[in-house]
Amino acid sequence: MNNCSYTKDVERWFDGAAIDSDVESHVADCAACAEHLQFLKLTREAIGAVDVRQVIGDAQLPSFLAGIEEGVHTPRKRYTGLWAMASAVAAALIVTVSTMTILSPGPEPVGAQTVVEEYSTEIDGATAESFYTGEEETPTVWVNVPDGDMW
């Protein structure tokens, strides 16, 4: 970056403006301004090398500026409605699945066994007992009735 106070004068002189100060002799003494002047020359040559230059005519300028204005100020398209709906559907799914999971009896829990808490008989002389039978260990409550007529 050229911090020399002659920089603006150098640029104006380069563009052909009438300058009071002796810019040319300053550029010969100031390495920074000489470098800046070289940069301006190279830039001009590079621009001049472009085959087709787009020129915005005066008639096109209002449309050109309007396009820029529109690009700058038009709000970016937001998908608020779509996202809101997707969120609502996701929330509804979560609530539904959670509710079904809570209310569904589901598979039998491991260890849910039948428990015989108490048993008795009022038949005279009979006794009651509890045991498990068969391959499935079926709980069984049994009355052992004495020989003879129950009644």
Partner: peptide
């Protein structure tokens, strides 16, 4: 003229599992 509890039991049954009550003639 008379009814008695031949077997009276309190139990907690596992859902869907069998339970046998028996022994009476």
């Amino acid at each position: 003229d008379k009814t008695v509890n031949a077997l009276d039991t309190v139990l907690t049954m596992a859902p869907g599992k069998h339970l046998n009550l028996g022994g009476l003639r």
